[in-house]
Structures are given as structure tokens and as C-alpha cells.
Design a protein around this nucleic acid. Structure first.
Lengths: 343, 343
DNA sequence: GTTAGCACTCTAAGGATTCGAGTGCTAAGT
DNA sequence: ACTTAGCACTCGAATCCTTAGAGTGCTAAC
């Protein structure tokens, strides 16, 4: 168990390192007005903290930096959310006040806000499927063999797919199909659409629809939900401004990873629990971001999980500030969505 | 006017510099099997070419590199498109063979192909408005005061906007509105929709539709076309791999610029003329890309300009290869689109 | 006109040196 | 029993030198 003094010194050191990105030495700490021990004493304590695994030295004659274990301890036990300034609060309120009717725009704007206020890279997983339900489906023929399938959800999100129609199908048949689908699938969650067709209305379709086989194949393709199409980024290049990534060879794998939506989705995949989660360095199990931390928060509609907002930055991240900001942003977003879609 | 020998030497030098990214000296050139003069002779010629402004020296005891004027001359007079290998041609054919029914996916995939085969950053300006016409319009109410407006074009592209309905409007009224719009605006080019409402059907609406004022405001917002929503990128981070951009301070402005869609759109804005265009360094009038060249090509449907594909890389770009590739890719894309939408 | 020869220039790379920040340890002070 | 001053020691970063090498321009000979 750490002593009061160790806790104090550790916290001061982490805060200083977060601010300066330079290894922190005993003299630097001793100079602070709230520290009343000599550098020698501090050195003794820091050596103990290092033995316990909370601190590391880049080399033998350097100051100390927090280890991953240290950061973990810091966020678990020492994190006091930083109060945002009045201007910041006002700025966020204003940003959310702009009316983004399109859900995509709102989501993108949320990412922008997070990135602008943190100066890190922000990622938002778009409104997840759990609570988005089919409101309306339609097929609009383009020409003899092509059509557009449009699905509108209760959240105003529009999914569309171009589909290849079975040869020689007549318009009446399509209309019939759409009617059946609309009647049976209304209010079905998007992610369940594909299964719903398979399990619940396959037989109806077989009875009433010509070209049954082809239609089934078509629906199977078209109704698959691709969560990776709903990832929004902001501030990818802000990584380059971080001192630990000023080297092209360090930042390139990172940026390449961010371009891979499958990997990013896997990284941020909702854990199921709401609230804020922090993953530090190797806890993310991804070599490309072993020097990064990922902070995620969920947003909800009426308490139901809807999606995830995330900020990714160096492990030396301004945790207090980011956590506060994410709390506020996810709350704003949840409120706005709840107000809009919770009838 | 340059002599034959000067042309030969210049071409050899540019090709070598494009390959190696290192200033090229007289000895390097003399070593080539197709060059039969001594380094001293070559030095004399190079000095002349430098006096004429086609070459530059990074410093007094270095080899030469092409100047912007030199690149301009090279692409104008010496560019012989590089024949692609059988594998490359096959790869491109294969890539385009995958059926991307959604226009967005096809556009994105085109960017990916360009970037993959050139190893530079590719940008595609999505199907432009000139030839995309409204096929179908629909308004789907979400709740009492919100609805989604959906527009489908003849190319299968779907535009959607969430709109705020006038207070207390009844569903029948909306249906009437949609019917009028569909009847009157079918086959209207997207970019002209807004004006068409103003000029051609305002009076009809005024007569038949309640909440006329509010509806007009709403349509005005919803029908505006935003070309910047249709820019597709691929391989932004490939810039980092170029020797001239291995310095974070050099790439950051560049990547930030690429994140600004308004600037990118302005940069690539269609010139009106079809075909391939090359802009070198300062010809782009953008400080961020003063060391870059931009190569654009248009793609068409039945000969009508539809959009632009572009590759951006260092001025030391593999022009012959990129030009060949862009010719092939834009042709493939045009053919595919023409076949699909030219009834 | 071409080229060998040569003096000259400039960069990049590799040491060597110095500087300073920081540490650990010991011994003295409270 | 802590705390702290003092000091030797370590290591990286910066600076300066030196050297090697690639390349040039010029001159004079071919």
C-alpha cells in the first residue's frame, strides 16, 4: 500500500509528465510550491515507486515517467475529472445546439467536437443497431434489371443498396414484395432484419413471390448490416502533433491502423457496459497502439446503448480533461438523441 | 530550342531522379549503357540546361534535379506513357469486375485502385451533378414533426435529408407535396432542383399546398446540392512514405489540407475540358502542396463529364506510370458507368 | 567538339568533447 | 528514524571537428 506522500508525489509526477512529455526529475518536483521535501527525499520515494512498478526510467540518468501499471493506477485511483472552463462548456453547448437533422452529420460533428476540444483523435461508432428499427422500406426501380433498396430507421437514418433484380420480374411483383416486407418487418431492429427474413417470413415469401430463390439471395445480401460503414473520425492528423509521434516511422503504422475500419471497430467494439472505459497501451492488444490509450464512452437513447464515442491519444494523455469532456459530450449526445427519438 | 542530345540527357536525368529521389550527377548518367559521352561533356550540357531553367542544384556541389519548369517541359514534350504490365492490367480489370452496385462503393473502390497501383494518394470527385437526374423523391415521416426526404437519381445514388415538418401539417398534405414534386421534377438534374422549385413550380405549390412559406424554406435547404459530400480519398498516409515527406513538419500541412474538403474540391474542381491534366507544384496555387503535383482525369457517361479522378504525389512523381494508369482507370470507370446508366 | 585532369565546394557521416540534468549512495543533521 | 546535503557517477543531447566522397567548373590537351 502506498503512503500518502507517495500518492502525492506520484500524482504530481504523472500530471507533470502529461503536461510536458519530458521525464520528470526530483528537482522539478521539489520546486513545486505544494511539495515541501528535498530532492533527495523525493528520489528515495521515486526509487520505491519504481521498485513497485509504477514508474520507469528511459535511461539510468533520466527522470521518471509513469509505466503502464502507473497509468492504470492513476486512472483507477487518482483521477479527479478536470472541471471544464465556462468557455469550454459554452462552446460544447453551442456546438450541439446547431441543428444537425441528419444523424450522420450529428455523429460526425460529435467526433469533431471531441477532437477539437481534446486535440486528440476522436472516433465515433455510429448509432448502433440495438435500438434502430426499420421504419420504412422501399424498392425503387432504376431500369429493367436494377433497383435501389432504401431502408429508413426510426432514428432517421437511411440505408440504401443498389440491387440487381431477377430477370423478367414485373413491377407488380416487386410492389408485392415490398408490401410484405414493410408489413412484417416494421419495427424490427436492423441487425435482426436478415434473420427475420430467414426465420419468420421465408414461408410467406415462398408462397406469394415469384423468383423466390433469387429474391432470397438478394435480400440476404442487401439486408446484411455493416457496422463498419458507421465509423466517424476526426483529427487523425492530430497524432502527428504529439511529441511521441513526431517520427514518421512511429506514426505511420498508427495512421494505417486508423484507416482499417475493421480493426478500429474491433478495437472499440461495445463492451456491453455503459459508462467510460479507459484502455492503456498494451491493454488494447494491438501492437500499433502500444503507446496509445483509448478512452471510450457510450451514448444512449432512453438509457439503451446506442453507440460509442472514443478518443485515442498517447498513453501520456490528459486523462482528467478527456474524461470530463467525454462525460459531457456523451451526455449531450444522449440527451439530444433521446429527446429526438424517444416518443 | 534544345538539341537532341540535351533532350536525351534531360529525359534520362528526370527518369533517374523520379526513380531514386536523389540529385543526379554526370557520372551516374555517363554510366548508363545508352549514353556514350564522358561525364565532362554531360556536365557541360547540364550546365546549359540549368541556365535555361530546366534543372536546379540543391547546392553547388550536388547533382541536378528537375525544376518546376523542367517537369512542365517533361510532361508536355517528353512524356511517353508507360506500358503497364500484363499483371497490372489484369489486376485493374479484376478490381473493376467486382460488382459494386452502390455508386459510392464503386467510387471509393476506384480511388483505392488508383492509390494501390500508384502508391500515391488518390482522390475521386463523386459522380457530378450534370448528368445525374432525379428519378424519385419521397418523404417518410418519422414522427409528428420530423421526416426524411429521400431522393434517388438515375445513377442509383441516394441523397437523404432529415427535415423538420411545419407544425400541424397533415399527412395527406405531405403526400400531395411529394406527388407534385415527383411529377414536376422527375428527370431534373440534381444541381438544378433548387432553381426548378423556385422558377417552375413555386406557383403550383402556392396554390395547392398549405404552409407554403415554411415548405419553401424547407425545400430550399433540403434540395441544395453539396458537391463536397462526394469526395472520396484513398491512401492519404502513403504521403508519409515519400522521401520528401518523411519529416512530420512537412507532411502535416499537407495532410491537414487533404482533410479540408472545401479546399480539395477547389483544387480539383473540373476545368470543363475532359482528358488528363497535370498541375505541377506552384501551378496549384496552394502553398501546402508546392512540392506536389496533381494529375486529374475526368470520367464520363456517354461522353458527358461526370466526375474527376485525381492522384496527388510529390512533384517527383512517376508521371508516365500514373498517366497510363489514370487513362486506363478512367476509361474503365466511364465504360462501366455508361454501360450501366446509358439506356 | 570532346574529354582527362585537377582544384574546389559542400554535405553527410562519424568521432570526440562538453554540458547538464539526473541518479544513487553515504554521512551528517534533526 | 527520517530527512537532507554533498558528491561521484551516468548517460543523452548538443556542439564542434574531421574526414570521406560525390559532384562541379574550368583549363588544357586531344
Amino acid at each position: 500500500m502506498l503512503t500518502e506522500r507517495q500518492l502525492l508525489l506520484f500524482k504530481v509526477l504523472v500530471n507533470d509528465y502529461i503536461r510536458s512529455a519530458e521525464p520528470v526529475g526530483s528537482r522539478t518536483i521539489a520546486k513545486r510550491p505544494d511539495i515541501h521535501f528535498s530532492p533527495a527525499t523525493i528520489r528515495n520515494e521515486l526509487a520505491d515507486l519504481e521498485d513497485l512498478g509504477y514508474l520507469e526510467k528511459p535511461h539510468s540518468s533520466a527522470g521518471r515517467v509513469p509505466s503502464e501499471k502507473g497509468y492504470r493506477f492513476y486512472v483507477d485511483h487518482l483521477l479527479s475529472p478536470e472541471l471544464l472552463t465556462q468557455e469550454e462548456l459554452e462552446g460544447i453547448r453551442k456546438a450541439f445546439q446547431d441543428q444537425y437533422y441528419e444523424l450522420e452529420k450529428l455523429t460526425q460533428e460529435t467526433a469533431n467536437i471531441l477532437s477539437d476540444f481534446t486535440q486528440y483523435t476522436a472516433i465515433v461508432l455510429g448509432p448502433e443497431v440495438l435500438e434502430t428499427k426499420l421504419k420504412h422500406m422501399q424498392i425503387i426501380p432504376l431500369n429493367a434489371d436494377t433497383a435501389v433498396l432504401i431502408m429508413v430507421t426510426n432514428t432517421g437514418h437511411v440505408e440504401n443498396r443498389t440491387i440487381k433484380l431477377p430477370q423478367g420480374i414485373n413491377p407488380g411483383e416487386i410492389e408485392k414484395l415490398v408490401n410484405i416486407l414493410n408489413n412484417r418487418l416494421k419495427d424490427t431492429p436492423l441487425y435482426y432484419l436478415k434473420d427475420a427474413v430467414d426465420l419468420e417470413i421465408k414461408d410467406v415469401l415462398r408462397q406469394h413471390i415469384s423468383h423466390f430463390q433469387q429474391i432470397m439471395v438478394l435480400l440476404n445480401d442487401a439486408l446484411a448490416y455493416h457496422p463498419m460503414d458507421h465509423i466517424y473520425f476526426s483529427g487523425k492528423t492530430k497524432m502527428l502533433a504529439q511529441p511521441e509521434f513526431r517520427d514518421v516511422d512511429k506514426v505511420m503504422p498508427l495512421l494505417n491502423m486508423l484507416d482499417n475500419k475493421a480493426v478500429v471497430y474491433e478495437l472499440l467494439r461495445p463492451s456491453g457496459e455503459n459508462g467510460i472505459h479507459i484502455k492503456i497501451g498494451h491493454e488494447n492488444h494491438l501492437n500499433e497502439i502500444k503507446n496509445c490509450s483509448v478512452i471510450t464512452a457510450s451514448y444512449t437513447i432512453g438509457g439503451e446503448h446506442m453507440g460509442t464515442v472514443a478518443v485515442i491519444g498517447p498513453t501520456r494523455m490528459a486523462y482528467p480533461k478527456v474524461v470530463s469532456l467525454m462525460e459531457i459530450v456523451s451526455k449531450h449526445l444522449s440527451d439530444l438523441l433521446t429527446k429526438r427519438y424517444q416518443e
